[in-house]
Amino acid sequence: MLYGILAASSALLLAAVLAAVLRVPALRLGIVDRRWRRPLPLSGGVAVVAATCLVAAVGDRQGVTPLGPEAARLLVAGAAVALLGLVADVLRVKARFLVGGTAVAAACVVPYEDTGVLAGILAVGWIVFVALGFKALDHCDGLAGTVGVVTAFGAGACAAAEVMDGLAVLLSALAAALTGFLMHNWHPARVGLGASGALFTGFLLASAAVTTRAGQELGSGAGVLFALTALVAADVVLVVLARRLSGRSLLRPAPDHLAHRLRRLGLTPQGACVVLGVAAFGGVLVGVLVHLGWIPASGVLWVGGCALVLVLGLLRIKPRAKPAARSGVVPRPASPQVTTQLRVRNG
Results as ranks from 00 to 15, higher is better:
76 V>P: 00
61 R>L: 15
84 L>Q: 08
129 F>L: 15
105 A>R: 03
80 A>W: 11
95 A>P: 03
156 G>A: 14
138 D>Q: 05
146 T>F: 02
64 V>Y: 07
106 A>P: 06
89 D>T: 13
145 G>A: 06
77 A>G: 02
67 L>R: 11
74 L>P: 07
116 G>R: 12
77 A>V: 02
123 A>E: 02
144 A>Q: 12
91 L>C: 11
145 G>E: 03
97 F>Y: 10
155 A>W: 04
110 V>C: 05
98 L>V: 08
142 G>F: 05
72 A>D: 04
89 D>Y: 13
142 G>R: 08
85 G>S: 04
156 G>M: 10
87 V>T: 12
129 F>N: 03
136 A>E: 14
137 L>D: 09
85 G>P: 02
93 V>D: 01
124 V>N: 01
135 K>D: 01
109 V>G: 11
111 P>W: 01
121 I>W: 12
90 V>E: 03
137 L>C: 13
107 A>M: 06
153 F>M: 12
70 E>I: 06
93 V>M: 09
154 G>D: 10
90 V>D: 00
122 L>N: 03
106 A>Q: 08
61 R>P: 00
128 V>D: 07
65 T>I: 15
93 V>F: 05
119 A>M: 08
87 V>Q: 11
137 L>W: 04
133 G>W: 06
108 C>D: 01
140 C>L: 02
67 L>I: 09
66 P>Y: 10
70 E>Y: 11
142 G>E: 01
120 G>Y: 06
63 G>Q: 12
118 L>I: 14
115 T>P: 00
93 V>N: 09
154 G>C: 10
87 V>W: 13
130 V>H: 06
87 V>M: 11
110 V>T: 05
143 L>G: 04
89 D>H: 11
123 A>R: 09
82 A>R: 08
101 G>Q: 07
132 L>E: 06
129 F>P: 00
108 C>S: 15
157 A>L: 05
73 R>G: 15
113 E>A: 04
98 L>P: 09
82 A>C: 09
121 I>A: 15
100 G>K: 11
124 V>R: 01
111 P>Y: 00
133 G>F: 07
117 V>K: 02
155 A>V: 15
84 L>G: 09
81 V>W: 09
123 A>H: 11
114 D>T: 08
117 V>N: 01
